[in-house]
Amino acid sequence: MQIRPRTDDDAPVLVAVLAEVHERDGYPVRRINVRREWLWDDGFVGAWVAVDDGAVVGHVALADHFAGPGVPLGALGISRLFVAPSANGRGAGAALLDAARSATGDRPLGLEVTDSSTAARALYERLGWHRVGEGVAEWADLDGRHPHLTYYVAP
């Protein structure tokens, strides 16, 4: 598994992979977010892709500001983390998280995850991320509910 900085040329394949993830896992929650603009947010300070056997199979971005219950002030945030269904179990998610973490310097790193994302929560906990708080999302899911969120910080 190779991790490298994301480039503009990665956009078409990343959107296609994100569409697969949306169909399988419901991430992102809204189908309208399966698009380049959602992945290339101005608030990101870095983004990386996972490449397996020459194919882009995953993505992570690093947001400049991240806050939540129990998250230290000044934290950076993991955002837009996803892995192609065909690459699950090959270490892409862990490698992407490591790449983002290595770019944080001495700043803390956090993330949030919905309670319905059991596989993601299991990954974070297996990698030693610390559960630091809980809250309710400001955004609503497709049923109009505000999902319960769990906040983690990197070890």
Rank of each mutant, 00 (worst) to 15 (best):
D64I: 09
V83F: 11
G144K: 08
G110Y: 08
L96H: 05
L149E: 04
M1P: 05
R24S: 05
V60C: 12
S116Q: 09
P108M: 07
D10H: 03
L123W: 00
P72I: 10
D64G: 12
D141Q: 03
L142K: 11
R4A: 06
L76R: 03
V21R: 00
G68R: 02
A119Q: 11
R90Y: 01
R101K: 13
R107K: 08
A75D: 09
D115S: 13
V136G: 04
Q2V: 10
R90H: 03
T104M: 08
D143P: 03
G105A: 04
A137V: 02
R35G: 07
R6V: 15
I78G: 08
R31G: 06
E23D: 02
T104S: 13
W40Q: 15
V17W: 00
V15R: 08
N33E: 15
R4E: 04
I32C: 09
R126P: 12
G93F: 01
G43P: 06
W40R: 15
I32Y: 05
G89I: 05
V56G: 04
L81I: 12
R35Y: 01
L62H: 04
F66P: 11
R145I: 03
V15Y: 07
G110V: 03
V83A: 14
V136S: 05
V13Q: 02
S102W: 04
A154S: 14
A94H: 06
R24T: 01
D64A: 09
H22W: 09
D9R: 11
V113E: 14
H65E: 15
P85V: 06
E23L: 04
L18H: 01
R107Y: 07
L109Y: 01
S116C: 03
G77I: 00
H148T: 15
A84T: 04
R24G: 02
R36P: 14
L96M: 07
G54L: 06
E125V: 14
A103V: 12
L18C: 00
S116M: 07
S79F: 06
R35A: 02
R101P: 06
